[in-house]
């Protein structure tokens, strides 16, 4: 099993969220839910964890009187994601 892998990213749903956010500028909660096929509750929990680590920024706004949550990856998040990918690449090379 891995050593030195960021435990925050080494989870299926959080890694999915980060992989989506690294590819776009900003994504709605509904977009993340649709693409990851996660439940709203689980997604919400994982987003909070990523946000607490400052990997992402969560923006809460109103669109047509409905609350809207959108997520943006931070510089810290990009760096963590890149390091995670490098670690995986190194592991695959070794084996």
């Amino acid at each position: 099993m891995f050593k030195d892998l960021d435990p925050l990213l080494h989870s299926q749903l959080r890694l999915s969220i980060m992989s989506l956010l690294i590819s776009v500028k900003e994504a709605d909660f509904s977009f993340l839910k649709e693409k990851t096929k996660a439940t709203a509750g689980n997604l919400s929990v994982q987003i909070t964890k990523l946000s607490e680590a400052d990997y992402i920024v969560v923006k809460k706004t109103f669109k047509d009187n409905y609350p809207q949550t959108s997520c943006i990856i931070t510089k810290k998040g990009i760096k963590a994601f890149e390091e995670y990918v490098d670690a995986i690449k190194a592991y695959i090379k070794k084996n």
């Binding site: 891995f2 435990p7 989870s11 299926q12 996660a38 995670y84 995986i88």
Partner: peptide, 13 residues
């Protein structure tokens, strides 16, 4: 999608 905490292999990641 279920959250598999720390059970991913490198290929899965």
């Amino acid at each position: 999608m279920e959250t598999k905490e720390n059970q991913l292999t490198e290929q899965e990641s």
